[in-house]
């Protein structure tokens, strides 16, 4: 098939037509399909953590622990909420720079920072939780084993998280080099 034939087939592709009113509805964050999902999840998480913060003092023996330990518990939860919120803000901006390669490069840097931010936030959260719940507890054999088990589960969760981020970053790095390379090799 010659390129002129391809062009005529390409321009003859059927397309749907959207009315202005429908397009106007797409300009707000409220109707955005991805942001809507993230927002819903964020709201659920914030509500759940606010409930935990309201009841932990009596339910999880916060009153029997020193103020510093209570502060660590509260800060761990608040930083996790704050980090998720910055993720929501970052998901709004996908386009940076005057061309696609520059835009991908900026986006990649953002994703790399986010990967480390996400891992650090998770580590702070988990260590803070362990610190709070295991503070002053008599470490008998069963409790030590529980701590080891929780630690392993935590490390596995971190590994999954970093793998998820790394895969996304790897795909974008490959795409960027494919675009930059004249032969289109990855």
């Amino acid at each position: 098939m010659r390129i002129e034939e391809m062009k005529s087939l390409w321009t003859g592709q059927p397309i749907g037509v959207k009315q202005k009113e429908e397009l106007a509805g797409m300009l707000t964050e409220r109707s955005h399909p991805i942001l809507k999902g993230i927002r819903k999840q964020l709201l659920l998480e914030i509500s759940a953590w606010l409930i935990v913060l309201c009841v932990y003092y009596s339910m999880f023996d916060g009153e029997k622990r020193p103020l510093a330990i209570n502060m660590i518990f509260i800060i761990c939860i608040l930083q996790a909420i704050a980090f998720n919120f910055t993720g929501y803000l970052a998901a709004k901006n996908l386009v940076h720079g005057d061309n696609i390669i520059t835009s991908i490069a900026v986006y990649l840097e953002k994703l790399k920072r986010f990967k480390w931010g996400s891992l650090c936030s998770r580590i702070i959260f988990m260590v803070g939780m362990l610190f709070f719940f295991f503070y002053g507890v008599d470490m008998a054999v069963f409790r030590t084993l529980s701590l080891v088990f929780i630690g392993i589960a935590f490390v596995f969760q971190l590994w999954l998280l970093q793998r998820q981020w790394s895969q996304r970053i790897k795909n974008l790095v490959a795409l960027k080099s494919e675009l930059m390379n004249a032969n289109g090799e990855r």
Partner: peptide
Amino acid sequence: QEIVFQLWR
């Protein structure tokens, strides 16, 4: 929808 949103931004 995402494209129209990004265009607007």
